[in-house]
Amino acid sequence: TYTWNTKEEAKQAFKELLKEKRVPSNASWEQAMKMIINDPRYSALAKLSEKKQAFNAYKVQTE
């Protein structure tokens, strides 16, 4: 089980997950979700809006 003390740690864990699963920077949210949804870190960020925000930040960083 994973635990995160801060929102920032949770966001980092979520981005690490995207990186580890090699989600391409041109992937849509739907494509990315299919690649990461079974990992416990997918739940790091509770709100869908937070997940999408972190995903978009990840995409910008990896382009």
Rank of each mutant, 00 (worst) to 15 (best):
A44C: 06
W29L: 03
L45D: 01
F14E: 00
V23F: 02
E20I: 04
Q61A: 13
L45S: 01
K51N: 02
L18G: 01
V60E: 15
L18R: 01
S43N: 14
Q31R: 07
K34T: 12
N5H: 14
F14M: 02
M33Y: 08
E9T: 05
R41Y: 01
R41P: 00
K11M: 15
K21R: 11
D39Q: 00
Y2S: 14
E16T: 09
P40V: 11
L17S: 03
W4K: 07
E30K: 12
P24R: 04
A54E: 10
I37Q: 12
A27W: 05
Q12F: 10
F55R: 02
I36Q: 00
I36T: 05
S43L: 15
S28N: 11
E50G: 02
K15L: 15
E9M: 04
I36E: 01
K21N: 08
A44Q: 04
R22I: 06
E16I: 05
E16P: 00
S28H: 08
N56E: 15
N38Y: 08
R22D: 12
I36H: 00
A44L: 05
K11Y: 15
A27M: 09
N56L: 14
R41N: 02
L45C: 04
L17G: 00
K15R: 14
I36Y: 01
S25P: 10
F55Y: 07
R41C: 02
E8T: 08
E63W: 05
K52Q: 11
A32L: 02
K47L: 14
N5A: 15
N38E: 09
T3E: 14
F14G: 00
E8G: 10
K47V: 11
W4T: 07
R22T: 05
Q61V: 10
L17V: 05
T1C: 15
A44Y: 04
L45P: 02
N56D: 13
Q12V: 09
I37S: 13
K52G: 02
T3H: 13
V60L: 13
K15G: 14
K51R: 08
I37K: 13
T6R: 01
E16K: 05
F55A: 03
Y58V: 02
V23W: 00
R22S: 10
S25Q: 11
A44D: 02
A57F: 09
I37G: 07
E9S: 05
R41Q: 01
I36W: 01
I37V: 08
E20Q: 07
V60T: 13
D39M: 00
S28V: 08
K47Y: 08
K34N: 12
W4V: 06
Y42M: 03
K52E: 08
K11W: 15
K52F: 06
M33C: 11
M35I: 09
Q12D: 11
S25V: 15
K47D: 14
E8F: 08
K19E: 14
E16L: 07
R41G: 02
I36K: 00
P40Y: 13
A54Y: 05
Q31M: 09
K7W: 06
R41M: 02
L45R: 00
K34L: 08
E63T: 13
F55E: 02
N56V: 10
K59L: 10
E30L: 08
A54L: 07
A54D: 02
K7C: 08
S49P: 06
Q31I: 09
L17F: 01
A44R: 04
A27D: 03
K15M: 15
S28I: 06
N26C: 12
K15A: 15
K7T: 10
N38R: 08
K52M: 11
I36A: 02
K59M: 07
K11I: 15
T62C: 11
N56I: 12
A13H: 09
K52L: 12
S25C: 11
T62S: 11
K51P: 02
K11A: 15
V23K: 03
W29G: 00
L17W: 01
R22L: 15
K34H: 11
M33S: 09
S49Q: 07
A57T: 12
E50I: 03
E63S: 14
L18C: 05
A10N: 04
Q31W: 06
T1K: 14
Q31P: 00
P40T: 07
Q61I: 09
Y2W: 11
A32K: 00
E9I: 04
M33W: 05
T3Q: 14
E8P: 05
F14A: 00
K47T: 13
L48H: 06
Y58M: 03
A57Y: 08
F55D: 02
K19M: 12
P40Q: 06
K21T: 09
K47E: 14
